[in-house]
Design a protein around this nucleic acid. Sequence first.
DNA 1: GTACATTTCAAACACTTGTTTAAATTTGTG
DNA 2: CACAAATTTAAACAAGTGTTTGAAATGTAC
Lengths: 224, 224
Amino acid sequence: MVAKQNTQQKILDAAQSLFADTGFNDTSLRQITSLAEVNLAAVNYHFGSKKELIQAVLQRYLRVLMARLDQEFNQLLAVQHPNNLTQVLAVFVKPLLELNSVHTNGTRIFLQLLGRGYTDVQGHLRWFINQHYGRVLDKFVLLVQQSCPELPASELFWRLHFSLGTIVFTMASNEALAEIAQADFNEEVDIEGVIQRLLPYLAAGIAAPVFTRSQPQQQLRSGT
Amino acid sequence: MVAKQNTQQKILDAAQSLFADTGFNDTSLRQITSLAEVNLAAVNYHFGSKKELIQAVLQRYLRVLMARLDQEFNQLLAVQHPNNLTQVLAVFVKPLLELNSVHTNGTRIFLQLLGRGYTDVQGHLRWFINQHYGRVLDKFVLLVQQSCPELPASELFWRLHFSLGTIVFTMASNEALAEIAQADFNEEVDIEGVIQRLLPYLAAGIAAPVFTRSQPQQQLRSGT
DNA sequence: GTACATTTCAAACACTTGTTTAAATTTGTG
DNA sequence: CACAAATTTAAACAAGTGTTTGAAATGTAC
C-alpha cells in the first residue's frame, strides 16, 4: 500500500493548485483541506495561519529556484566582458524547468503563484520574497544593467516589471492559450515551447530604444 | 448648492475606486455603500447584483473607449499602405487619455479595472467584453498583422497575448510599482508616463526577430 | 390633498470565512 | 505494556459575505 503521505505535504500540494487557479484570497481553507483530505484545523496546527501557509507553498519552489539562479548569476558575473542580454535571460530557463522535479507541473504552478502574489493584495509576500532573496535578484538586475549600459536605471526597472507581467500573465492563461494555439494553428505547445517564444520577445522589449518626447535618442535626465 | 447626486452615480464612483485598488472579490458591498454614503440595499435595488455592478462600472468606460478606438481603427484601415507598428499601437494613447473626461483619473482607473478583470477570476467579464467589443478588437489584430507581414500568424498570436499580459499586469500592480519607482528613483509616475514607457517596449517585443533553434540571435541593441 | 410609484432604510436572512477549543486518537519511547 | 507527546477530530466561535424583506420616506401626477 501507498505509505501514508505527510499531512503537511498533502496540504501544500492541494493548496498550491487551488492558489494557482483561484488566487490566494479566493481559495478557502475548507477547499484546501477538503481536496487534501485532511481536517480543517490541520492548516492552523501545522502552519499557524493561512498567511504562513501561502509563504510555505512558495518557499518550496523559491528555495530550489533561488539557489540555482544564484549559481548561474555568479557564473555570469565572473566573466569579465558584459554578457549578451539574451544570454542573461536564457539563464532562467533551466532553473525554472527544473522546478518540474519539485512537483508535477512545478514550473507552471510556481509562475502562476508568483503572479498571484503580485496581483492579489498580498503585501506580506512581496516583503517576504524581497527579504529572503533580494540579494540574489539584485545580481540579476546588475547583469541586465551590464548588458544594456545605455539604459537608465528607472527605465530598466519598468521594463523588468513589464517582463514579469508578460511571464506571469502568460503562465496564468497558459492552458487557454495553448488550447487556442492548438486549434487555430495546429501547434502543440508545452511550457518549454512557450518559454522559447517568450525569450526573444522579452529581450527585444527590454533592449528597446528609449522613448523621448522631442529627440530621437538624447539625454533622459536633465537638471535635478 | 450641489444638486443631490444620483445614487447610482455615487455607487459607481465609490465602486470603481475600491475595485481598482482592491480587486472585485476583495471589495465588499458594505465598503462601497459606506464610501458612497448610501444604504447597503441600494446596490441590489439599482443594479440587481454585485456582478452587474461590476459590469456597469466597466461599461461607463468601455462604451466611450471602444467607440473612439473603432474610429481610429477605421481611419488606419482606410489607408492603402500598411501602417507602422508603433503608429498602430500609438492609436490607443489618445482614446485612453480621453477617459479622464469620463471621470477624474479615469484612464488609470479603467486600466486598473481591466487588469483586475483578467487577473481576478471574473469569467463573466472576459465574456462580456468579447461579446460586446470583439468586432472592434478584430480590426486591431488586422492592423498589426498588416504592419508585420513577415511575422507568422501563430507567432503574432503569442506576442499579442504577451503584450496583453504586460499591460494587464502592469495596471493591476500599478500602485505598488508607482510606489517603488517613487521611493527608488524619486520619480513621480502618472498613468500617461507608464503608457509612454510601455509603447516602445511592446512595439519592440511584437516586432522582435523570430527565434530559430539553429541560428544565433542577432545582437539586440538599445538605442537606434 | 389624495393616490400611486419610486426610492430609501434598518433589520434580518442564509451562508462562508479563518481561527480556536477540548476531547479523542494515534504515535513514539522507555 | 504504560506513559507522554504529537496529531487528528468535530464542534463552535466571532466576524464578514451578498441578498431579501417589508415598512417607512420621498417624489410625482391628478
